[in-house]
């Protein structure tokens, strides 16, 4: 009964990621795409909040968007996974529902 949450805006510009983190349930996944991948950077202001959640949910960042912004995997909050487009599709297929945080 899990949900895939998709966020696409920078957490330094909108509250979307924050709001998403406040509404996830155990077993859910969050996929960060486009500018939202900035939220995956280690030591950012949301990092503690994110790390705390990583125990009960999974967080993914889209590799293509990380690369485009010059962010290497070694720069991510520990526990955040990366995924390619095929993995994106798999995430959608493996969850009951998808919720976008626009």
């Amino acid at each position: 009964m899990s949900t895939l949450h998709i966020v696409n805006k920078s957490p330094f510009e909108t509250i979307n990621l924050n709001s998403c983190l406040n509404h996830v349930k155990e077993g859910d996944s969050i996929l960060l795409i486009e500018d939202a991948v900035l939220g995956a950077l280690a030591q950012n202001k949301l990092a503690d909040n994110i790390s705390e959640k990583l125990g009960e949910i999974s967080i993914f960042a889209l590799l293509a968007d990380l690369s485009a912004r010059g962010i290497g995997r070694d720069r991510l909050i520990s526990g955040i996974k990366t995924t390619d487009y095929a993995g994106f599709v798999e995430l959608v297929a493996n969850n009951e529902r998808t919720q976008s945080w626009l």
Partner: peptide
């Protein structure tokens, strides 16, 4: 939110 079949944002 977790009870829904479809979520439109």
């Amino acid at each position: 939110m977790a009870e829904q079949d479809i979520i439109l944002s």
